[in-house]
């Protein structure tokens, strides 16, 4: 669940971004649209507790991350983010030095968790890439790499998945496959899915696919300042 009220963020020595209020139920989908520079990344950063709001409220999975920064600080905030938020960046940032398995093991390390082999296997299996565990990222196709990155995002069973431009530089077929994977994964994990995108195909995909299931995505359009 994500709920915002009069949420705003002022860049240091820069303009203030004011965001429309939203209510995304747990397990719901929100599409965060708008051109570059409209504040999509800032919204994701606010939802992940990476920056504090300068005004208003934002509650993510029951945790208030409102005005004046989060009620959680430093290590507690890092721990909250680790267990609550899964992140799929546009550039996947799989470490080239590590195997697929170790990329996931590193995510557990980053979150301060003990290495949990069954969970790593489970996450890779959920994305159909368990056979790729010993491979290096350089040995993966684009689609395989995205699946691995998504396996990493759901590894700690987050309540919210934040995906940043997941279809950029993908052709139509690959974009549809990627979105279907995201939707299915978030749905299976029961996680709220937020996709920041300026790709019109994303909205089209969700309107076509979600309407069949009776789950309309929430569309939040941001405008460039």
């Amino acid at each position: 669940m994500i709920r915002t009220r009069q949420l705003a963020y002022r860049y240091p020595k820069g303009p203030t971004l004011a965001f429309p209020d939203v209510d995304v139920p747990q397990g719901g989908v929100m599409l965060l649209g708008g051109p570059s520079g409209s504040g999509k990344s800032t919204w994701l950063a606010l939802a992940a507790g990476l920056v504090g709001a300068t005004a208003g409220q934002i509650d993510v999975a029951g945790q208030s991350l409102g005005e004046g920064g989060a009620s959680l600080k430093n290590a507690a905030l890092d721990a909250w983010r680790a267990r609550t938020v899964g992140f799929l960046p546009q550039k996947l940032h799989l470490s080239a030095a590590l195997s697929v398995h170790d990329n996931l093991a590193m995510a557990q390390w980053a979150a301060g968790r003990n290495q949990d082999e069954p969970r790593i296997t489970e996450a890779l299996k959920a994305l159909g890439v368990e056979d790729l565990a010993p491979r290096r990222p350089a040995q993966l196709s684009g689609g395989q790499a995205q699946r691995v990155a998504l396996a990493r995002a759901i590894l700690l069973q987050p309540q919210v998945i934040l995906a940043d431009e997941p279809t950029a530089s993908l052709d139509d077929e690959a974009a549809s496959a990627s979105l279907a994977l995201l939707q299915a994964t978030a749905s299976r994990e029961g996680a709220t899915l937020v996709i920041a995108t300026h790709d019109a195909r994303v909205a089209r995909f969700f309107s076509e696919n979600s309407s069949k299931k009776g789950l309309e995505p929430l569309l939040l359009g941001l405008k460039k300042l």
Partner: peptide, 9 residues
């Protein structure tokens, strides 16, 4: 930065 995003202090 991704490590930070994944929860690493």
């Amino acid at each position: 930065a991704l490590l930070r995003m994944l929860g690493a202090p």
